[in-house]
Amino acid sequence: MRNLLYAIAVGLVGAALLHIVIILSLPSFTGRDAYTRVQSFGETNRFFPLANTSDTLAPINDDPAMKTAVCTFSVENGPIRLFAAGDVPFWSLVVYDGASNEVFSMNDRTSVSGALDTLVATPIQLIGIRKAVPQELEQSILVEMRGEEGYAVLRTFVPTRSRQEAATAFLADASCEAFTAD
């Protein structure tokens, strides 16, 4: 009898663990994970604003007090520079790898001059850059990314309608481009 109860308990625990693993891995098998959805915008190295509603699988901006833009990128052929400046009350940036793991995050309070100026690169690329930092990167924040593909999410706060235009311009002028040293 004791062996039967033990076998049932082990079976239930095993089944519960199996179900948890399946549920957590389901997005990567269905193509509906965050990275795949962000890639659906098509073009890399460009910030795309998110709509407040969506009829597709594309990500949406679900907070009316925030405006959001995303950019997919690859650092395989060189670093990516993320830059944005403007008169907004608050902005934040999060960089994710291809598995949607957070690599780096910051906001306007932790930036050097209140503007977004970040370089995302592989460890090997950063070694070369740190040996002789180009003048245009002296105030930039250097971010090490172990994988080659990822995406960045840039958000800005829109407390009132009068700030809507500035927030839209901030995201429209944001750049997510390959960096080439001059």
Score class of each variant (00 low, 15 high):
I129L: 10
L50N: 08
E136T: 13
Q125H: 09
N77V: 04
A58H: 06
D87S: 12
D87V: 07
G86I: 08
E102R: 10
V103H: 07
A99N: 10
F83A: 15
D55N: 13
I127S: 14
D62C: 04
D63Q: 04
T44W: 03
I129C: 05
V75H: 04
D33Y: 01
A115R: 05
R130A: 11
D97H: 10
A34L: 08
M145A: 05
V75K: 01
F73H: 09
A34R: 03
N45W: 03
T122L: 09
S92T: 04
S100M: 00
T56L: 07
S105M: 00
M106W: 01
D55E: 11
Q135T: 15
F73L: 10
V88C: 01
S40P: 06
Y96S: 09
I80M: 08
D108F: 01
Y96P: 03
S111K: 05
S92C: 02
K67F: 03
V103K: 01
L57G: 01
G31S: 15
V103T: 14
I124K: 08
S111R: 07
P89N: 12
P123Q: 14
E138W: 00
L116G: 09
P79D: 02
V88R: 00
V38R: 00
L137H: 13
A58W: 01
S40M: 06
I141H: 10
K131E: 07
D117P: 11
T72M: 08
T44A: 12
I124W: 03
N101K: 14
R130N: 13
E102I: 14
A99R: 05
R81C: 05
D87T: 10
G42H: 09
F104P: 07
K131C: 01
S100C: 02
A51D: 11
G78L: 10
I129R: 11
V88A: 07
P123K: 10
N61F: 03
V88S: 05
A84V: 04
E76S: 13
Y35A: 12
T30W: 14
Y35E: 10
D87C: 05
F41I: 07
I80V: 15
V143Y: 01
P64G: 10
L93T: 04
F48W: 15
E136R: 08
V94C: 00
T118I: 15
D55C: 09
